[in-house]
């Protein structure tokens, strides 16, 4: 049974009806296929209506939808099963909140990196809620360097509420780990495509976010801080999270308008969680399309363009 978040509550009645109709169709001789078809159509329309006009805060809620697909689901679907996960930063340990490894997309080898969230309570803890420690960022860097050595493009899938703010993270240099990645990614001689698939919070997201193409899924967000924390700091209460979400201009549309990302990937009607397979297909197509363009650019030129792009970001007078 699908989980419904607040904005999806209007779907409940239709879903219940559909459930019943399907039950009748399967368990009895009565033919209700027309009813089912009608209900499905109604559901589709209702979903479209809900998802067409999401506020910034509602998008943040969709980006955190419990049924939303996470990094490994994308990787497994896109590579068609030949993905080999690679572990460890070769210094401290293997960070479960950051995954990575080699796989292929339509015959092209790629190195995947990305934060991984858990699908249930136990896994969420195991994955530390997608909040990587310094060893996670160092693992990602190790894999990117490995990719560079064998001239393999890097695909970075971003989905994190932030880098982990713990005692050990500080001891092992969370700041240095992220900073190092920013500098090294700027100079990596292979194409890098970054896709924000869910939450893109602050330095924790940016730490694997320096790419030739930075794309956002339609219902993801990307900013310097989460709306809740922004509200807590500026208003000294969590109550203004909706307003903070609006002010931060964290949706794909706003980020694209402000020239801070390179594109938006459309999600199926009702969001990525409503049709993961369709989402994976779109993402795969987009990766292939971008890779084709990026592979045609000489490495020196690629690096130069990448650095120039980030250096143009900001507004001064």
């Amino acid at each position: 049974m699908a989980t419904l978040i607040e904005i999806e509550k209007p779907l409940q009645k239709l879903l219940d009806q559909l459930d019943k109709a399907e039950h009748i169709q399967n368990e009895s001789d009565v033919d209700v296929s027309k009813t089912i078809k009608d209900l499905k159509k109604k559901l589709r329309e209702k979903r479209k209506e809900i998802f067409e006009n999401l506020t910034a805060w509602e998008r943040v809620m969709v980006s955190r939808h419990p049924d939303r697909p996470y990094t490994l689901a994308y990787i497994n679907a896109i590579t068609g099963g030949d993905f080999i996960e690679l572990h460890g930063d070769r210094t401290v340990k293997d960070d479960k909140a950051m995954v990575g490894g080699l796989g292929s997309i339509d015959g092209q080898s790629v190195m995947f990196i990305g934060q991984q969230k858990g699908i249930n309570t136990k896994m969420r803890q195991y994955r530390n809620f997608g909040m990587a420690n310094p060893e996670g960022y160092r693992k990602a860097l190790r894999l990117m360097k490995l990719a560079e050595k064998f001239n393999i493009p890097v695909i970075s899938l971003i989905d994190t509420p932030g880098a982990f703010p713990g005692v050990e993270a500080e001891e092992r240099g969370q700041g240095e780990a992220i900073a190092r990645n920013l500098m090294e990614m700027a100079q990596l001689s292979v194409p890098i495509i970054c896709i924000i698939i869910g939450e893109g919070a602050s330095g924790g997201a940016l730490g694997i976010g320096i790419g030739d193409k930075v794309l956002m899924l339609e219902n993801s967000w990307y900013s310097v801080i989460s709306p809740e924390n922004c509200s807590a700091i500026l208003w000294r209460t969590w109550e203004y999270k909706e307003q903070a979400a609006e002010s931060l201009k964290l949706t794909g549309e706003d980020m694209l308008k402000n020239k801070l990302i390179d594109g938006i990937i459309k999600e199926p009607i009702g969001g990525a969680h409503n049709d993961p397979e369709e989402t994976f297909r779109t993402v795969k197509e987009e990766i292939l399309k971008q890779l084709k363009k990026l592979k045609a650019i000489e490495p020196d030129k690629l690096i130069e363009k990448r650095i120039k792009k980030f250096c143009a970001m900001g507004v001064t007078k």
Binding site: I178, A179, L182, L206, V224, N258, I307
Partner: peptide
Amino acid sequence: EAAFSLMQMAKTSAKLS
């Protein structure tokens, strides 16, 4: 300055490279 501010991290680090 929200994400504009975030991207200054990328900008300064890229330049330092």
